[in-house]
Amino acid sequence: MRLITGAAGFIGSQLAHRLWKDGAELILIDNFSYGSKDNLMFEDHDFNSEIQKVDIRDKEAIKEIFQNNKIDYVYNIAGIAPLPDCQLNPTEAIEVNLVGFVNILENSRIYGVKKVIQASTNAMYENETEFPTHEDNFKQPTLIYPNTKYCAERFAESYCKTYGMNVTCLRFANVYGPHIDCLRKQPPFVGYMIRELYYDRVPVFHSTGEQRRDYIYVEDLINLAILVQKSEGFDCVNVSSNKNYSVNEMYAIAQRLMGKDIKAEYANTDHYWYKYPGLYEGAYPIKSEILNHEVNKYSLCDNSLAHEKYGWTPMVDMEEGLQNVIEYEVKLLSRK
């Protein structure tokens, strides 16, 4: 049996659907702070009647789930990921991304889970200057979100060394695919540009649009998440395409696929955070250089460990992946 936390989110719901199709028994939980009922509806199955509203910080509820079920594998996908949300409410980010994860680890230890797969992030490479980035050598991150994930990895490593448990931390590159959130206040870039093109609005990008990111299609990520079930001990693995694209390149592909011709506007990097005035309040507002770095940072993650250790290779190229996202998002937006 497999437990998926954050199962109503973009990645968690896609993982649940794939495992369900493979015939796995599932326990799905989400506190719906970021998850959506729309994510749980697929053409061949609706998970809305099967998911439990549970927060991973709830000690009694999580304990009861482990007590009452023989759970072999845990996928901890629950978390607070948007960088502004983590900066504005660091206490909650730490409680969910770190304390909640330790709650999962402790119950996995007590009740004999074979393997825990933790959703980590390539955001912890934010201060790197040499590319592609590797798993075993990097500078500690600065912002709250990647630090919560970095600390979560340290606790996972501690549990493996202390108790002989098995944990793999998957450092996701920028994940895209069907069900990506395009409705929240600050959507991921892919969801945002598709939404604006759908409504024939002019999207506002930041800096020059030449900043480059490493992307991974959600189905490729899930393939690796399943493969790592077999390994023992502790490891961290980049989940990346080892290719990167600029904002302008991505937008050009999306426009062509959607049959649109809308020239984007460009704003200063500060504009990226203007919806979050709390970052500028208080005696010590956020530094402008931090904002500039976050918007303009370059990412490219080496994926050779995933290939060598697990035989994994990403299969979906950017054009095919974006076409799949567009088809899903257009259906979703047409119902709103």
Rank of each mutant, 00 (worst) to 15 (best):
I4Y: 06
L183F: 14
T129D: 10
L3R: 01
N122Q: 10
Y125A: 08
N69I: 04
D302C: 08
N107T: 05
L143T: 09
S334N: 11
R195W: 03
Y266Q: 08
E60K: 15
H206E: 04
T162G: 02
T269Y: 12
C151I: 15
E43F: 09
P314G: 02
A264M: 09
N137W: 13
I62D: 09
D136H: 08
L98R: 08
G233Y: 04
P82M: 10
V239F: 03
Y159W: 03
Q229A: 10
C182W: 12
E95F: 01
L3D: 02
A252F: 00
A8S: 07
P187Y: 06
L170R: 02
D200Y: 08
I262R: 06
W273P: 02
S288D: 13
L83A: 06
D22K: 14
M315S: 15
H134S: 11
L291I: 14
L305Q: 10
N76I: 05
I326S: 11
S241N: 07
R256I: 03
K21T: 11
Y284N: 14
K70N: 12
N48Y: 03
V102F: 05
W312F: 06
A173K: 08
L224F: 10
D214M: 04
V247G: 04
S246G: 12
E64N: 07
V116T: 10
S240G: 05
N103Q: 13
I104M: 09
I326C: 12
R212E: 12
G23V: 12
Y266D: 05
T168K: 07
K309C: 07
T133V: 14
S334I: 09
K263P: 02
N103S: 11
L3N: 01
I262V: 15
T129L: 10
F189M: 12
R2F: 09
D30G: 02
Q211P: 01
R57F: 08
S49A: 08
L83N: 07
K115I: 11
E60L: 11
N107A: 02
Y192Q: 13
Q14C: 14
A119M: 10
F10G: 06
K53T: 14
V325I: 09
E327W: 06
K185C: 03
W20D: 02
D44C: 08
H271N: 10
K115M: 12
H206P: 02
F189S: 00
T162W: 09
F172C: 04
G209F: 12
K230W: 01
G6H: 06
E157N: 14
R154T: 11
G278L: 10
S299G: 08
C169G: 06
Q118F: 15
K287G: 00
R212L: 09
V113F: 10
L83T: 13
L40K: 01
M41D: 14
I65L: 15
Y284Q: 08
G9D: 05
R2T: 12
N166W: 02
L40C: 05
Y163W: 07
M318I: 13
C160Q: 09
L333F: 12
C182P: 04
E95C: 01
N147C: 14
L40R: 03
R195F: 05
E60C: 07
L221N: 00
